[in-house]
Each structure stands twice: as C-alpha cells, then as structure tokens.
Design a protein around this nucleic acid. Structure first.
Lengths: 345, 345
DNA sequence: TTGTACGCGTTATCAC
DNA sequence: GTGATAACGCGTACAA
C-alpha cells in the first residue's frame, strides 16, 4: 500500500545469496542456471513480490521494443480499425505502441516525432499525411507508411487501382452504360488516387466514357449532403432512364448518397447501381446493404508491423544491410456484392 | 546515415567545456545559466544534432510520464472516440499513452497490466471490464475507469440514469402511451445499467408501465436483426394503433431497428417514436436522423485523464495523501432531438 | 553560477 | 555455472 521502495535485482541477490548477474541471467539465459537455483530465485521473486523494470533494461541494452504510431484521427472507422489491428500484433511481435493523433499541423507532428524519438522508439508507422515522405526518410529509424504518400519510404497499401477497376467492372457487369465515379480531388501520389485511375482505365478499355465528379467531400455529413444532392439532380436530368453505375470513394459517402435517394424516391431507383469502398460497418448497416470494395485492414496492419520488425531486426545485426530502396507492398481488395447492385432484375 | 553513436550530455559537455551537470541544468533549470552560456549550449546542441533520451531521464528521476490504457476494442465508435480524446490530452497534460486492446481474456489482460507496470507507467485508464475493480484497486498505481464496473476504483461515467430518464421523458412528451426499452441484460454494477433504471423510474413516476425487452444484442449486425424483427412483430400485434415510444440502448441498434421498420413499411410508421443512445455518427447518418441521448465523450476522456493526473501528482509529493475512497464523477448526457421523434404531427 | 560524485536498475564483459 | 565490475545517459545533493 505505502511507498515501499521497489524490489530490485540487488534485493533478490542479497536474499538468495547470488549476485545481480545471476539474477539477470535467470531472466535472459535461464538455461545457464541449475534447475535447483532457478527454483530458488523463482521463489525469491514470489516472496519479495518482484516487478520487472524494463526502463532500466532499455538503458542497459538499448532495446525499447517501442513502435511509434501517428494516425490522423480515430473518427473514421478505417483508421481506428487499422490501429486496432496494429495494437493487436502485440501478441505476435511483442512490440509496444506509443500512439499520437496527428492534428494536421506539420509542426506539432514534428514535435510528436521528436517526442517519440526521445523515447527511443525502434520504428514508426505513419498514416498521417502532413509530413512529406522525403523528410520522414531522413529519420534515423525505419518507417512504414499505410495508405499515404510514400515516394521515399516503405509502405503497405491496398491495391487501390485494382479496387477501382473491380468497381467499374462490377457496375459494367450489370449493364450500366453510364459509369460514374464520385470522389474528392487528390494528389496523384496518394495511394487512394489509384481508385480513380483503375476506374477510368477500365472504362477506357471498354470504350466507355468515365464520368468523374470530384468535390471536396469529407468535411462533415451535413456539408456532404448538398454536394451529393446536386450531383443527383444533375444525373437525374442528364441520364434519365439510363442505367447509372456509381462508384463512390468510401462507404460513408455511399451511405449518404443512398439516404438522399431514399429521401427523394423512397427507395433505390431501378436505374441506380451503387458501389462503395472500404467495407466499413456502415456498408452493412445502411438502409440497403451497400456493395463495396473492401480493404483487408487486418493484413494492411499486420504486414506493416512485420515489414517494420524485419527492418528493425536488420539494424540489430553486427553488419546491418539496410534497404537501399523503399519497399512498397500492396494488398488486394475484396469485393462484396450487396443489395445496391445485386437487385432482383 | 550510419550507426553513429548517439550524442550525449557528455559530448555536449566536452564540446562546450561545461560539465554534464550544466548541460542537464540547461534543460531543467535554464534560468540558472547566463543567457550567454545558454546560447553556447543551444548552439552546441544544434551543431552536434543532439536528440533527447528520455529513457535515461526516467531511470534517473523516476518519472515516465506514461499512462497505460486498456480498451476493449476499437470497433465500436464509442471506444475509439474515447481513445481519440484521451490521446488528444497530450497537448494539455503531456502524458504519453501505452495502449493495449483488451481481448476479453482475464489472464492476458493481467499480462498486459504487468507489461505496463514494467514500463513504470504512472497511472492507468481502464475501459475493459474483464478484471474486477477489487483486483485493480490493489495495483500500486492510481487507476481511473470509464464506463465499466467501478465499485472499488475511481471512475468517470456518463449520468446514465439521467440519460434513461430523459429518453423516457422525451417519448412521453410526444404522448407515447406505450414506453418500451430495448437493451441487453447486464449486471447492476455496470454504469450503463442506469439507463434501464432511469427509464423505468420515470415510467413509474408517471404511472406508466415500462416495457423491457432484454436480449443478447451486440454480437453482430446480422444476429441482432432477427432479435429486433421479433420485437417489432410483437409490438405491431400487441400495440397496433397505439403510439409506441422506444428507447434503444445504443445508436447502432437503433439504426438497425429503424432499417427494419423501413423494410417493413418503407418509412417510419406514424405510431413509432425512437430514441437511441450515444450520439454516434450513425445516429445522424441513418436513413432518418435518430434522436439520441449523447455521451459527452470529450469530457469523459478529459476528466478521466485529469483525475488520474491529480492522483499521480499527489503521489509525487513528500507526504502524499492518497484517496481514502474512490472518486466517482458523472458527466451529464445531452439530448439530441431528431427526425425519429420530431415529426410533423 | 558551475562542478564533483554518486545513484537509478539493468545488461555486458570478462574473469574465475 | 557464477561473480565482480563497468557501462547505459541523465538527475541531484552537496560542495565550491
């Protein structure tokens, strides 16, 4: 209860009449002790109620087993699920995670990184996109990006191109003759740009003209509503009666779109076909289940940690062979066919 | 680029012809140096590219500035938003967070706690509910619970009782004469139980008979569907034509309920009034916006960290006066009136 | 205002 | 198989 000093190796050593060294060995090379002595020490640990102190161990051997994480927010399900999966790799790799929420300000994120480095993190996973990868590549530790600009650092991404391609193919397979993609404008170097590219490439291969609606979405539900409303009005006017296949950049937006159609028509009109992206919970829980291109978040996270662990291990070797070029790994998306495309026709 | 040894106070000291102590003071008591000398050291830090090592500092002064967090999952928006807010308090309090996902197994969660303690965390915030608070209260650090069983430890909770009461009042205010609450069965000591209590107490005060449907919800969307479907069938049969006010334990479930009504009737029938709980995004993004009793997650998280920080600071005093009794603080809920109750009548 | 000497709790190196 | 002893990098009396 009180402020008892903590029990240390010294206490154990005195109690057992061994040396500190032997106690240390009990933890790190137990085989080098006789079974008998192992038991003695083990009993002493119990009796004195010893609690490990890994901070001292870090100072002595330099290994923190810390990985730093900077994530843009936890509001979007995608990010929180990625973090969930990252944290869960503790069971496999044993690394602990120091997590910061990037707040969109470059300078504060730089401070976070300094703070992480001061705690001797061995590697970093970054999903926040404010700091350019060129700058990150200069940091003294291995870094892995997930779904962000990654020209100069290693990364794990969903195969966004294939995702966009599959979405277009799904819609075309339902005989949609107007193929539409709704997204936010973005830089070519952001992985998600592949969704646009894959979608338009499929259209071109099929000699269809892809219709792109790029608006500044994602600020908030209420500000997305009028933007989508406007698009619906335009589509209804211009393509009345024609079968419209619409690929929307994420499930949240797809759900908003679907809600607007329900408000206007009380249902999903026959000539509308919808595909979202992410396979986030809302795609199953919307008023009609939404077909979507799912990201394999568990794999994204696992591979990111694994790639990081490999590079961190490499550094611990006597003669490290660091990566000369960043590694970019890509995880295939998975298609979910649901009610917004698989109607009884 | 290479494996250059890290720059330490010793290097700075040699470079500036000061002693290590002075360098240390530069960081901890800069005022005790002349401005001139501060500048000299500051320049040297730049030149040698010094990086702080907080691990060494921890070993020397015992303050890790670590808070451990154990959270059940990040799948539910409530938890991820709480974590979001907790992490964001770094800006205010400066504490860093080591986060573990509780995996429902008591013994592995105990291991997590040991791991956290071995890193010398100064306090812990726990939302996971597998380990009884009595056991937690025996740990050698301050602990604060959020929305979990908290008989023997301090806690921050939403005023669930008031939430249930308000929900019932809102429904009664719309002249619902059948008041229904849908929830999962739970122990009386879980804060969320207050929702049931508040709801039924209001009903009794108004001489209304509260109708409780307690089912094992929350496993998955698909397994909730039939449970809710059955309830709807029963309500339609038993209370046809009467105005039904339904308080559902959380917004996810309320949304599912609403979707089922839409599938059956193509709309929210006139005699159904719905109130959810949490004010999670789905309550705004469902096909009709759902009235809900919102938890003030930002406050929950902030107060939890603050309470913890107070207790951690108390321990650092020469003569600590630890809490004799756990502190239980309660945050009022906020009502959001939306389309599922505020119809044009 | 600045320096000396030691402690924090563990691991690593070398002896025995 | 076991034990001294010296790191690891910083903070803090105490002394000057």
């Amino acid at each position: 209860m009180g402020n008892k000093k903590k029990v240390t190796f010294d206490d154990i050593a005195k109690y057992t009449h061994f040396s500190k060294t032997t106690i240390s060995r009990y933890f790190n090379h137990p085989d080098s002790l006789t079974l008998e002595n192992q038991q003695i020490i083990s009993d002493a640990l119990e009796k004195l109620n010893y609690q490990e102190n890994k901070v001292a161990r870090i100072l002595a051997n330099g290994k923190t087993e810390f990985i730093g994480v900077i994530i843009p927010d936890l509001y979007h399900h995608f990010f929180s699920e990625v973090l969930n999966r990252i944290l869960s790799t503790y069971e496999t790799f044993g690394y602990k995670f120091l997590v910061f929420i990037g707040n969109e300000h470059e300078d504060t994120e730089r401070q976070y990184i300094q703070e992480l480095l001061s705690y001797q993190i061995e590697g970093m996973i970054i999903m926040s996109h404010t700091i350019p990868s060129l700058e990150l590549s200069a940091l003294p530790i291995p870094i892995v990006a997930i779904e962000r600009e990654d020209q100069h650092i290693s990364s794990i991404n969903t195969d966004n191109y294939m995702g966009g391609y599959q979405a277009a193919a799904l819609l075309a397979g339902h005989d949609c003759d107007v193929l539409i993609h709704i997204n936010s404008p973005m830089d070519v170097h952001i992985p998600a740009y592949g969704r646009i590219q894959g979608f338009t490439d499929f259209c071109k291969e099929q000699s269809l003209e892809p219709l792109l609606y790029l608006r500044d979405f994602g600020r908030a539900y209420d500000s997305d509503l009028p933007l989508l409303s406007e698009i619906i009005e335009e589509l209804d006017l211009t393509y009345a009666g024609r079968r419209k296949g619409i690929f929307i950049s994420n499930d949240t937006l797809a759900n908003t779109f679907l809600n607007l159609l329900f408000r206007k028509y009380g249902c999903l009109p026959k000539d509308y076909y919808l595909v979202g992206f992410d396979n986030s919970p809302i795609s199953r829980e919307s008023v009609l289940s939404i077909s979507t291109i799912g990201q394999q978040i568990d794999q994204l996270a696992y591979e990111a940690v694994q790639l990081l662990v490999e590079q961190m291990n490499e550094r611990k070797k006597r003669r490290p062979a660091p990566l000369k070029e960043p590694v970019h790994k890509v995880i295939p998306p998975v298609m979910f066919r649901r009610e917004t495309t698989e109607k009884s026709e």
